[in-house]
Design a binder for these strands. Sequence first.
DNA 1: CGATGAATTGACCGATGTCAAGTGGCGTGG
DNA 2: CCACGCCACTTGACATCGGTCAATTCATCG
Lengths: 226, 226
Amino acid sequence: MLSVLAQSKLFKGLDPSILQAVQQHAHRHQVESGHQFVQQGKPALAVYVLIHGYAKIVQVTPDGHQVLMRYIGPGQEFGLVSVLEGFEYPASVQAVEECEALFWQGELLAQFIERYSRIAFNTLRIMAHQNQETQRRYQELLTEHVEQRLAQAILRLAQQVGHSIANGTLIDLPLSREDLAEIIGTDLYSISRLMSHWERDGLIQTDRKSIVLLRKEALERLAAQS
Amino acid sequence: MLSVLAQSKLFKGLDPSILQAVQQHAHRHQVESGHQFVQQGKPALAVYVLIHGYAKIVQVTPDGHQVLMRYIGPGQEFGLVSVLEGFEYPASVQAVEECEALFWQGELLAQFIERYSRIAFNTLRIMAHQNQETQRRYQELLTEHVEQRLAQAILRLAQQVGHSIANGTLIDLPLSREDLAEIIGTDLYSISRLMSHWERDGLIQTDRKSIVLLRKEALERLAAQS
DNA sequence: CGATGAATTGACCGATGTCAAGTGGCGTGG
DNA sequence: CCACGCCACTTGACATCGGTCAATTCATCG
């Protein structure tokens, strides 16, 4: 568990003794599949680092649309805004399987930041990356069509949470057509059409619990062409 | 000029003596209308605070589309990522009128952050806000139509850079139809249609150099209805 | 083996991007 | 001071992507 922290973006690069100290202040939170760690709109009190399992970060818009921001796995953090006073969680975080996380009060992280500048810069780096990622997706939405966006999304998932297997890359998350629709901002019908098309052409292979990416280059070509 | 810094999001809340020290390390950069402070893709070396004038933050996508992220005015900062090593500027910053800015090497800001935690938290707060803003616009793009998005964009501009005048709010930036199109992600034709419609109905009033918002509530109603 | 929820597929339609032609105003240069 | 040309804007016609609805099939779990 210490080793997960040592690898995490938030706490990596710390002296072992400091890492120890950090870990000693952690609390543990276990959540079963489908349940939430934190809820959008509630005051942001704590920052979390996932130790085990996968979770998804979901926003719902004022008019009721769901937006699936991203999936996170072991070593990844959420709730960073809790270091700042007066913020609310911008999204809910929901376990897609049995999950375990460590968490710290936001104030405590603030103290860490004051004391250990390495943590301050780690935090900044994480936020900067998130910013870039959101902007990239914003641009995609502006300029690319549903087909390209879906291809990109699958490639991104493969890279983030995929495992290499014999004939390709396995993404073993229970991704419904609706989930994919919420990721790229469309409806499940469009997803369905594209997926069965790609499956016929042997680019991918799907069942209810997973996706296998068979011909990566072909998808990349699709994602690229504007 | 010190007072502009004292008001800026990046350096506000500092002891006067520290603010002094910060200012002593600043360099000055003057840029004429239409020219750039920094260029997208170049290594991010310095952070800037605008002292005078207005500038726009623009990204161009891999396939050549322009995206106008936002306008900034006196007291606002850009190039924050330069505190982190190995980043590039994610966007270009272009003056829309004669502009003057102070700037600091990224490494120097990093030292400030280590030494004065107030600056660290200011930086974090700025990044968190930017994130939220980008996500809000992402959602808008997903769920709202061109008409609502344009209404929102104009309201936002009015709030950020508008001046109250007799019959409404004046936005005195040289905003072409194309600029507006790049803000909300559409083409100049759609903008043109909507704008002339609204002008006929007396909601707004435009010429080449400015926009006057006459009936704010009416625009708000348009922006809200989904 | 039935029931329930997910996925598929087809038909339809509307918002919006694209193209083309025309208008108007402003500045420049004669 | 006038005329020309350029550029931003307007307006209409058209094409198309993709969102919506309805009907059907599929698979999974009890």
